[in-house]
């Protein structure tokens, strides 16, 4: 049984990697069967990944969300969930071209981060905390999809506007579809991310008796949140769309990525348990 469970992460990684490869081939050779097979591979990668997470939960009695390795594997899982749901709902076939490699890279990175055995404090075993982390990560995954759709929008917009068309023109969907996909991803991602942040605040109040302790991760997440809030607001109020909205979606995701990784790697704070080797 343990032997089988040990093979599961490799199978999940293989699923994601093969899916990535097929999506790349699909980009060049536009055969629908490639894209469909790639999606099935992503699904199988996701199934094994879920199995491996469930295995961990049974073994430990809680879902480990403490260190960077845990966070990355959950991020990869969130990206996969969000991608699968969006792919089925939004019908944008090329989405896999960024979602599959993102899941694959994140997951492989998580497998290669050395596990540092440490005593897990009781406060990191709470369901509240798991919910806070999962919501934040799923929200971030949706915002990553928005960033990807934004990049594709910028490529396609340039192809049409410059009148050069080129490699991507025939391979990417219409501007309208890409814009709608990015906007839907942002609305979904922003909502879930906000809920994740609120849960974090509530949990902080419960264990530390204060909503915020102004550690760098909280500050940077707050800044990213404000940028997304502005983006959604402008869309609703004055109909911000197209190129400007796409650029904003990319920049905002850059900020978010920094608050997810950069803060831990460069600055520190009470979320520093993620990266014990940098925490002071």
């Amino acid at each position: 049984m343990t032997m089988i469970m040990n093979a599961v992460p490799s199978l999940a990684a293989a699923g994601y990697v093969l899916s990535t490869v097929l999506y790349c081939v699909y980009l060049f050779r536009q055969k629908d069967i490639l894209q469909r097979t790639a999606f099935v591979l992503a699904l199988s990668g996701f199934a094994f990944h879920t199995l491996s997470l469930v295995g961990d939960m049974i073994r430990l009695g809680y879902l480990p969300v403490l260190n960077l390795g845990n966070a990355l594997t959950l991020s990869a899982w969130s990206v996969a969930v969000v991608f699968i749901v969006f792919r089925l709902r939004l019908k944008i076939k090329v989405m896999g071209i960024y979602a599959a490699p993102l899941a694959a890279l994140t997951y492989i990175a998580s497998l290669n981060i050395p596990e540092i055995p440490s005593e897990t404090p009781q406060i990191f075993k709470s369901t509240w905390l798991v919910l806070h982390v999962m919501m934040a990560l799923i929200g971030e995954a949706a915002l990553a999809m928005a960033c990807g759709a934004g990049v594709l929008y910028l490529i396609q917009e340039h192809a049409i506007k410059s009148k050069k068309r080129g490699f991507f023109y025939s391979r990417l969907p219409s501007l309208e579809q890409l814009d709608a996909a990015a906007y839907t991803s942002i609305v979904v991602g922003f909502t879930v991310f906000t809920l994740g942040l609120i849960l974090g605040l509530v949990y902080s109040k419960m264990v530390w008796h204060r909503f915020a302790s102004w550690d760098p991760k909280e500050i940077w997440s707050g800044i990213s949140w404000l940028v997304y809030a502005a983006l959604v607001h402008e869309r609703i109020a004055v109909g911000w769309r197209g190129r400007r909205a796409a650029i904003m979606a990319v920049i905002a995701f850059g900020l978010l990525l920094f608050s997810f990784l950069g803060v831990n790697l460069l600055i520190g704070g009470h979320h520093g348990g993620f990266t014990p080797w940098t925490a002071g």
Binding site: Q156, I160, Y169, S170, P173, S174, L175, E176, Q177
Partner: peptide, 20 residues
């Protein structure tokens, strides 16, 4: 697959902008 008349080319472009 691809348009080879002015009017078809225009419509093909319109579809890449508006989708439907």
């Amino acid at each position: 697959d691809s348009a080879v008349s002015i009017s078809y080319a225009a419509i093909e472009l319109a579809k890449k902008i508006f989708g439907d």
